[in-house]
Design a protein around this nucleic acid. Structure first.
Lengths: 201, 201
DNA sequence: ACTTTTGTTAACCATTTGGTTAAACTAAAA
DNA sequence: TTTTAGTTTAACCAAATGGTTAACAAAAGT
């Protein structure tokens, strides 16, 4: 517990919480102020406007999540290793911040032009390496023929989707939170197993 | 083109459009009124409040999408057929209304207790039949051992995710809308192929 | 010591927003 | 032709909301 807790940090913390749970449109500056335990005017002292504050939060979140996920793709691991490591790391990561994916997807959909480019304007994720790697494995006859983009979409989809659909899944299955967590824990092995089983020869 | 176009219908049409694109929190009654080409007071004449109107829209949407998707699971098709039909039907369906899934997931997450139960309060989707079917196929040794819930999550994830992540995917890959559509068209065959390839013996 | 800068607050302001009211209009019934 | 019921509008209202101002406290220079 390092207790710096400067005012700006408290604001960012509060803003992150409120923005993530309520979204840009649903968040209220007053709520953020309350959550941070400060006056509302102080928000505008540190961050000129709601948009500025949101932008700060959004970029911080997006740039802490996306690079970590693409770093694995850019590494020197084998394809199967990448699939395994990605699933495990990513699901682990999201389990600690389950509301991030929907938040990002949502705001990205609502304001594509504003954010999409700014998110990875400088550090556009380089998936070409994995794509080449997949094509190569196919060419060598190590795995069955598969469109790289579909494969990557499948991987990402299977890791992320359960979290954004959690309320729906719980509505259908009646799963408790604990059961859901256990299911996601299993999933760290299940997803790569499922994928590899599908493409291996 | 049946041109009844009663005022109420125009309102519902406009509200659906605005709510889906902006979400409950982001939608403005005035926008809906403008979109419907009527006075704002008329909205309240037909639907007492914003919440009432939203509820109407949300339930209409959810109850037209979800039952259609579960009907396939409850049918008498073989497991492989179900996987194939579901993928094809569902992707087709979402291609015609690409913003629906994120809208539903989003509002379902923001107001779980309010909607989750009301959506399928009366017609809770019965996935037990497919679950039993999957277990049976495993027991008979027709497919490899697989946890039914994971399998169903995988199927749903692979069908839905690309649409909710479209801006992200386009940001990464630079895909045009036409290319994206083509990719989704392929996907109607690719998803079941991928899944069946994984579980078949 | 005092002056300048930085941090913080209460009170305030303008606009937006969901919602209401009363009056006007329309069309069909009496 | 007058009622009457439903439909539509302009004008209005109160609350909420993003943002500002002026005063004040606390550090930081000098």
């Amino acid at each position: 517990m390092s207790e710096e807790h400067t005012t700006e940090a408290r604001i960012l913390e509060a803003a992150k919480k409120v923005f993530i749970t309520r979204g840009m449109a649903g968040a209220r500056m007053q709520d953020i102020a309350n959550e941070a335990g400060i006056n509302k005017a102080l928000l505008h002292y540190y961050f000129r406007s709601k948009e500025k504050l949101f932008e700060t939060i959004f970029r911080e979140i997006a740039q802490r999540f996306i690079p970590r996920m693409t770093a694995i793709f850019e590494s020197d691991l084998t394809l199967f290793e990448k699939i395994e490591v990605f699933s495990s790391e990513y699901i682990d990561n999201v389990m600690k911040n389950p509301y991030i994916p929907l938040f990002v997807l949502n705001e990205l959909n609502k304001q594509p032009d504003t954010f999409v480019k700014q998110v990875w304007g400088d550090k556009k994720p380089n998936i070409e390496k994995v794509v080449a790697q997949i094509n190569e494995e196919v060419a060598r006859g190590n795995i069955k023929p598969v469109h790289p983009l579909h494969l990557l979409m499948n991987l990402l989809a299977m890791c992320v989707f359960p979290f954004v659909a959690k309320p729906m899944l719980q509505g259908v299955t009646g799963l408790t939170n604990e059961q859901f967590t256990m299911l996601m824990e299993q999933r760290k092995k299940e997803v790569p197993r499922f994928i590899i089983e599908s493409i291996k020869k």
